Amino acid sequence: MPNNPVLPVKLYIEVEPRERTDLAETFEARFHKHGWEPEWRDQIYDYDHYHSTAHEVLGMASGHAILALGGSKAFEIKVRAGDALLLPAGTGHRAIEQSRDFLAVGAYPAGQNWDICCVAPSQTMLDRINSLALPKYDPVTGSTF
């Protein structure tokens, strides 16, 4: 996994109250407000992958999961409903364990179309990751990068 040379992974703990019943909609509205377009609701793939054409933010809408970040030298994090996770382009990630009710919302900066990469990056992929524009706003806080 190439990971990202500039933008760090960010874990936001309990961004939204866990007891809310509309967390998917709440995350989608928050991300959209900050220029990140929600594109899917689902669980997280259970195989190592990364995106070379887009940064990604995940909003945990229900349940809990253990995720591996960084590929073969992965570290594990636990996420629960109400948490969010910013994954810069190139950041390897996969689900190790997910509760039956786990649901994440995935969003990407406007104008960035995501791909799924599972192999060691070519120089072209590394160049694409390294030259990808930083998002204008943080998807969770709305602050500038």
Score class of each variant (00 low, 15 high):
19 E>Y: 12
21 T>K: 14
24 A>D: 15
25 E>V: 02
25 E>S: 14
25 E>T: 11
26 T>K: 13
27 F>T: 06
28 E>L: 02
30 R>H: 03
32 H>T: 13
33 K>F: 01
33 K>V: 02
34 H>A: 03
35 G>W: 03
36 W>N: 06
37 E>H: 09
38 P>F: 05
39 E>S: 11
39 E>V: 13
41 R>D: 04
41 R>I: 12
41 R>Q: 11
41 R>F: 02
42 D>S: 15
43 Q>A: 14
43 Q>G: 15
44 I>Q: 03
45 Y>G: 12
45 Y>V: 15
46 D>S: 15
49 H>N: 10
49 H>F: 05
53 T>K: 12
54 A>G: 07
57 V>L: 05
57 V>D: 01
58 L>R: 03
58 L>A: 06
59 G>V: 00
60 M>Y: 07
60 M>G: 00
60 M>R: 00
62 S>K: 13
62 S>Y: 03
64 H>P: 00
64 H>I: 00
64 H>C: 08
65 A>T: 08
65 A>Q: 05
66 I>E: 13
68 A>G: 12
69 L>R: 08
72 S>M: 09
73 K>D: 14
73 K>G: 11
74 A>I: 01
74 A>Y: 11
74 A>F: 10
77 I>G: 09
78 K>N: 13
78 K>W: 00
78 K>P: 00
79 V>S: 01
79 V>N: 03
80 R>H: 13
80 R>Q: 14
81 A>K: 07
81 A>S: 12
82 G>D: 05
83 D>T: 06
83 D>E: 08
84 A>N: 06
84 A>V: 04
85 L>Q: 09
85 L>K: 04
85 L>P: 09
90 G>T: 07
91 T>Q: 14
94 R>D: 02
96 I>L: 15
96 I>K: 07
97 E>C: 04
97 E>M: 10
98 Q>C: 13
98 Q>S: 14
99 S>T: 15
99 S>M: 12
99 S>G: 14
100 R>F: 11
100 R>C: 03
101 D>R: 06
102 F>L: 15
103 L>K: 14
105 V>F: 07
105 V>S: 06
105 V>R: 04
105 V>I: 11
105 V>W: 03
107 A>H: 02
108 Y>C: 09
110 A>K: 15
110 A>G: 01
112 Q>S: 10
112 Q>H: 09
113 N>H: 14
114 W>A: 14
115 D>F: 05
115 D>R: 04
115 D>Y: 03
116 I>P: 00
116 I>H: 05
119 V>H: 13
119 V>D: 13
120 A>C: 02
121 P>H: 04
122 S>W: 04
123 Q>D: 15
123 Q>A: 14
124 T>P: 00
126 L>A: 08
127 D>K: 12
127 D>W: 02
127 D>V: 10
128 R>C: 09
128 R>A: 13
129 I>D: 02
129 I>R: 01
129 I>W: 01
131 S>H: 08
131 S>I: 00
132 L>N: 00
132 L>A: 03
132 L>K: 00
133 A>H: 08
133 A>V: 07
135 P>W: 01
135 P>E: 01
136 K>L: 13
136 K>G: 03
